[in-house]
Amino acid sequence: MDGKREAIVREIPGLRRYARALLRDADAADDLVQDCLERAFSRLENWQTGTSPRRWLFTLMHNLFVDGVRARKRRSELASAAAADIPQAVSAPEQNGVLDLHDVLDALQEVSPDRRAALLLVGVEGMSYAEAADVLGVPTGTLMSRVARGRQDLREVLDLVRRRRILKAVQ
């Protein structure tokens, strides 16, 4: 049992990264990870040792994400609205070329959740199309087109951000 625990705990950084990229809001993302871990530990018997817990955990988390996508969307919109009221709290983001690193995470939120998830699993988490399709519960062909369209969408949003570049508000 401890081996299973450790194997799951090792996946936490990856799960957090995926959740944060999916949801953008740090707090909502950690909520999602926590829900996922709770579910994982309550269903340990569903997971066979010897196989990677990775796919299993990402699938659990994806299902929770889909279940909660509407509620969380409302929550993060509230957080953004509240954040917009306190521009004096802004800190200077690191710049990377033309766009800063936080711009890209914001831009990602403009990509639909289906495409966003596909793009992240393949592009950031390094899953194969087959693995990612399995996690998302869709045929491989669907996954492929989501990845391609997600990339196109992200490129368009980034171009828009570049054009109307918002550097930052200053305290």
Binding site: A83, A84, H102, L105, D106, I166, K168, A169
Partner: peptide, 8 residues
């Protein structure tokens, strides 16, 4: 950080 981006 979100504030900056969101406000921006």
């Amino acid at each position: 950080l979100i504030a900056g981006a969101a406000f921006g």
